[in-house]
């Protein structure tokens, strides 16, 4: 367990200190949210209607954009190879790295999203449900980002390929995420079915992603 703790702590430290980490993801998120009204016009009613969906799309793109740093630097400098010879199996390393990615990208973005909602005239009643749905949903997004990063780790310019491969898989998380954000209009309804399905999606990926990611990493480390 201390192995995974060490890995998560190091990844967080790197995310804070290096370019392309938490700060960049937040900046990108903010930029998308600002550009959106410029693209579709300042109609307050329209913005209010699309705000939850728009925030989710922005979240999704920000998470995907930061996917590359999950494995790429460690693959390039040989750290991943050393980790493969360590006491923890690659499956555990993949899940630890996905969790570190969530802590450094998904979590801050999910906290920032409801606040940025003010820029889009978000219905104040939706702030809490949106925040909760994003906290949970971004776990699924980080897990899939981890899978995408593992699948393309040895490729130059894998960025576009990650988008093509992973964005279709984001659809369920997006649909139920938006639905959970807007369903509990009267307040956060934990038993709302969308939220439960969102949790089920997260659990499914928690099982599938480490297996698939570790298999991919082994193929690249050969």
């Amino acid at each position: 367990m201390s192995v995974l703790k060490a890995l998560i702590r190091r990844d967080l430290m790197l995310a804070w200190r290096q370019g392309g980490g938490t700060g960049t993801a937040l900046g990108f998120f903010l930029t998308v949210v600002v550009l959106l009204p410029l693209g579709i016009g300042p109609d307050q009613a329209l913005l209010q209607r699309i705000a939850p969906g728009a925030l989710w799309i922005a979240l999704l793109l920000s998470v995907l954009l930061s996917a590359e740093r999950i494995f790429q630097p460690d693959y390039d400098d040989g750290s991943l190879e050393q980790m493969a010879l360590g006491p923890a199996p690659l499956e555990m390393i993949a899940i630890a790295k996905a969790f570190a990615h969530w802590l450094s990208a998904g979590l801050p973005l999910a906290i920032a999203a409801p606040l940025l909602g003010f820029l889009l005239n978000l219905d104040p009643a939706l702030i809490l449900p949106l925040g909760i749905a994003m906290l949970i949903g971004s776990l699924a997004l980080s897990l899939l980002a981890c899978l995408g990063a593992a699948i393309t780790v040895g490729l130059r310019r894998g960025g576009m390929l990650v988008s093509l491969l992973i964005l279709p898989l984001y659809i369920p998380a997006l649909i139920f995420g938006v639905s959970a954000s807007t369903a509990g209009q009267a307040g956060p309804d934990i038993t709302s079915s969308s939220l439960l399905i969102l949790i089920a999606i997260v659990l499914t990926f928690t099982v599938v992603v480490p297996l698939a990611a570790a298999t991919a990493l082994r193929a690249y480390l050969r």
Binding site: L147, I151, G154, L165, P168, L169, I171, P172, I175, F176, S179, I197, I201, T204, V208, A212, T215, A216, A219, Y220, R222
Partner: peptide, 26 residues
């Protein structure tokens, strides 16, 4: 290597097809 990675992509996609279908219907 391409074969291994492509297999993973196909299998993960296959697991997701029913989930996607279900979610899109919802």
């Amino acid at each position: 290597r391409a074969a291994r990675i492509a297999s993973i992509v196909a299998i993960v996609g296959f697991i997701n097809v029913p989930i996607i279908k279900f979610s899109v219907e919802w």
